[in-house]
């Protein structure tokens, strides 16, 4: 549920990037921050380990502006992908409005994608929320690795593995090159709109 402050007439939309470790969740946010920092005028908060892994979460807020009397603010979060940080992932999911599941296209991490999606399902259930009802976008990241000759899974295979029942909108992407990063973000924000409008009514 979006955070709506009727007194200050402020709406906060919380988007969480979820997925297996090393899948490119932080890279999505870094691309948005580096490419559009001049326009969105914000700071990205990132807590990393020495090995450049996300320790707690990354946070990138930005203002969309005042629309129909409400200040619309979007907050992008990532979760740490490593299996051991499950309690942090659960915590970050609290009050989430929309989720981008960043799957890794590399064939060797196929199983990890599926385990991470299962973990998302379980953690949402902990908040009595259904993965089938929450706005969700699938991003199949790292397609640029095919150029290096690394075996990848096709979008069709990933759809079969992860999206057969969910039927969420999906994008192939290369977060490191920025390909489809913005499309993914716009799509998930727009998918949250009906729920937010429902709350505003």
């Amino acid at each position: 549920m979006a955070f709506i402050n009727p007194k200050t007439r402020e709406v906060q939309i919380k988007i969480v990037y979820y997925g297996p470790g090393r899948g490119g969740k932080t890279t999505n946010l870094e691309y948005i921050y580096k490419k559009f920092n001049e326009r969105i005028k914000t700071e990205m908060v990132s807590l990393k380990t020495h090995g450049d892994r996300t320790l707690f979460f990354d946070f990138l807020p930005f203002d969309v502006g005042r629309i129909m009397g409400y200040d619309i603010r979007v907050q992008l979060y990532t979760v740490p992908g490593q299996v051991k940080y499950d309690s942090t992932r659960k915590l970050v999911l609290r009050g989430v409005d929309g989720i981008v599941f960043v799957a890794d296209c590399m064939a060797i991490v196929r199983k990890k994608n599926m385990l991470s999606l299962k973990n998302l399902y379980e953690n949402l259930s902990g908040y009595n929320r259904s993965i089938f009802k929450i706005p969700l976008v699938m991003q199949y990241n790292k397609i640029d690795l095919a150029d290096e000759g690394i075996p990848l899974l096709s979008p069709q295979t990933l759809d079969r593995d992860l999206n057969a029942q969910l039927k969420a909108p999906s994008f192939v992407a290369s977060a490191i090159k920025g390909y489809n990063v913005i499309k993914t973000m716009k799509k998930i924000i727009m998918l949250t709109m009906p729920t937010i409008q429902g709350q505003l009514r």
Partner: peptide, 16 residues
């Protein structure tokens, strides 16, 4: 916005 599709937009499936 400068987002160019990588050459391997539809990577060949490494198979199930």
């Amino acid at each position: 916005s400068g987002e160019k599709a990588p050459d391997a937009d539809s990577p060949q499936d490494a198979g199930t």
